[in-house]
Simulated scan of single mutants.
Amino acid sequence: MTNPHSQLNELIAHLAALTEILALDTHSHWGTHFRNCLSIARALAGSRYDADELTGLACSVMSVYGGMGSFNDYAPWQNGRFIVGMESLDEASNRVYMAARAIRLRNATDVG
């Protein structure tokens, strides 16, 4: 079974990478959401947290994926051009989602 601390550290690493990429688009509001999640994740890593707090973080991260107007619809374009440096956005985004999902699934199976 995967260690929750290592799962949190993995999520932190992926969130940090994604926020760096999103910082290239100064007009996007998505960076704010993921920076907030990163801040919460780092605070949890430096404290004694419980499964509910970790699940809450994972749910917050995942909440912007899916549906119309979601992060999945985000296109890194400015002035009619693709923003240079955003080539790895999809991969970074997917890693964040999968790391949050793994935390959520682990905690769901630990209950009961």
Rank of each mutant, 00 (worst) to 15 (best):
S47Q: 15
M62T: 09
P4Y: 11
L44R: 05
I40R: 03
Y97I: 01
R35Y: 07
F34P: 01
I40Y: 01
Y49E: 02
F34S: 02
V96L: 02
V61Q: 03
E87Y: 12
D52F: 12
I12S: 01
A16M: 04
L15G: 00
R104D: 15
H33L: 07
S60K: 04
T109Y: 10
S39L: 10
R106E: 07
R35N: 11
V111P: 09
F34C: 08
E53Q: 15
A108H: 06
H14G: 09
S88N: 11
E53V: 04
T109I: 12
A13H: 04
D110V: 12
L11F: 00
A13W: 05
E20P: 02
L11H: 05
L54I: 09
N3Q: 10
M1W: 09
A16S: 06
L89A: 15
N94D: 11
T32R: 15
D73R: 03
S47T: 08
L89Q: 09
G69I: 14
A75I: 10
V96P: 01
S47W: 08
Y65Q: 05
R104S: 14
N79S: 13
M98I: 11
G80F: 02
R104N: 14
N9H: 11
T32N: 13
N3V: 07
R106D: 07
M68I: 15
T32M: 14
W30P: 01
R95A: 13
T2C: 06
N72G: 10
L44D: 00
M86T: 06
S28R: 00
N107W: 02
M62K: 04
T2W: 08
M1I: 05
T32D: 13
T19V: 10
F71W: 04
E91Q: 12
